[in-house]
Design a protein around this nucleic acid. Structure first.
Lengths: 120, 120
DNA sequence: AGCATAGTGAAAAATATTTTCGACTGCGAA
DNA sequence: TTCGCAGTCGAAAATATTTTTCACTATGCT
């Protein structure tokens, strides 16, 4: 279940379950789902998960949020209610990126801002 | 020079000049270019400039950065040295975004991660 | 020039994040 | 089983970041 050499402690399992319950949560929201785990451990564990690629950290302007790294997708952020949703159809073709000057592309992210169906 | 009803104070001019000197600076970098301006004023003024659309706030994972809102462009972030550069050819066609479910698109941003020419 | 009010700065408060360090746990070796 | 250790934990402290408060100042209008 875990990558090489990492222990599956109860705390880590709890945090993984919290992450599985909902995408793009803030650290506080995750911690609220397993309050018996120390806050520092939540920070540490999310760092660890990010490093091994199990979790992606999002910086969408309202503090860090975390999501399980599943299928490639991007985010829709509602200007009025702040809700975050996902869309799968990736509009970027890495091969065709018009990036001059020897920059070697590894990955990308796209954020789309506007208004969600509820707010309209 | 200013929008409706905003006073052109020396502090605001100094911050604008600091912004003009270099794109995507952190708040500290901006403050360092005009140390006689109070830190709180830098925060407040950048908020104001963002609200009136003169400045864009960037959240690229290493804290907020600010840039003058000029031509539409996106960012290239180097994984190894962290440098930020820009590219103009926008790969997104807002008309053709495959965004389901009644989301009304207003704007978007794209970040491309990889390695810059120097680091290669 | 005089006034009303937006704007400013210093300090304090509120938040957020990272570091430190002593204690605990499970595992392999003796 | 007992020892020792590496990895992990959590509380508190240290740092960093952002917001609030409030008395004072300076700008823009008349």
């Amino acid at each position: 279940m875990k990558g090489r050499g990492y222990k599956a402690t109860p705390q880590r399992v709890a945090i993984l379950e919290a992450l599985a319950a909902e995408q793009h949560q803030s650290l506080d929201e995750i911690h609220a789902k397993c309050p018996h785990v120390g806050l520092v451990t939540v920070y540490r564990t999310l760092d660890l998960f990010s490093e091994i690629g199990a979790v992606r950290r999002l910086d969408l302007g309202d503090g860090s949020r975390y999501e399980l790294a599943e299928a490639h997708h991007h985010h829709l952020i509602c200007d009025s209610c702040g809700s975050i949703s996902e869309f799968e159809g990736c509009p970027i073709d890495p091969e065709r990126l018009d990036v001059e000057g020897g920059f070697e592309v590894r990955s990308h992210s796209v954020e789309v801002y506007g208004n969600c169906a509820e707010c309209l």
